[in-house]
């Protein structure tokens, strides 16, 4: 199947205020494609959770979004510390975020489960000390 559109975003890991800029831009782009509002909402939330995770846990990263007639594919790649126990990280309420992150409104351990809930398919590849790659697919 031919790819119709690709977007590439660099996510700055040093600026918490800018976290979400990529997701905001993606949401604008998806709106212009006239996709169903619920599809846009699901993709936006999944992307935003992933973007925030890269900022607070991995020192930033990159996002690639590929859109075909059938699906939105979001690939998040970072060179952060990696996730030591993925099944634990997928549990609601599990978080290693420090206290200062909680005072910024995050770190409840809800992000990864939420990303799974809002995508039709999600895979996590992670290596300790190397980084993490998360691929999410949302059917259109």
């Amino acid at each position: 199947m031919s790819e119709l559109l690709n977007f590439h975003f660099v996510v700055d890991g040093t600026n918490f205020t800018a976290a979400g800029n990529a997701s905001g831009q993606l949401k604008k782009n998806l709106r212009q494609l006239n996709l169903a509002p619920e599809t846009i909402r699901r993709a936006s939330i999944a992307m935003y959770e992933g973007e925030i995770n890269m900022v607070i846990h991995a020192g930033g990263g990159e996002a690639d979004v590929n859109i075909t007639e059938k699906e939105i594919e979001i690939i998040l790649t970072d060179n952060g510390p990696g996730i030591s126990d993925i099944s634990k990280a997928m549990q609601e309420g599990y978080s290693t975020a420090p206290e200062n992150i909680r005072s910024l409104g995050f770190g409840a351990g809800m992000g990864l489960p939420n990303m799974k809930r809002y995508s039709d398919q999600m895979t996590i590849e992670s290596e300790l000390g190397k980084g993490t790659k998360i691929t999410m697919k949302i059917n259109i």
Partner: peptide, 30 residues
């Protein structure tokens, strides 16, 4: 906690919050 807003809300809600940073608006947008 924006984490909770992102995980629980699924309709057109107003967000009441005491969080004073831009992520409160970002979350509403998403």
């Amino acid at each position: 906690m924006m984490s909770d807003v992102l995980a629980y809300v699924n309709d057109r809600s107003v967000l009441l919050t005491g969080l004073l940073n831009v992520q409160a608006i970002r979350t509403a947008e998403m």
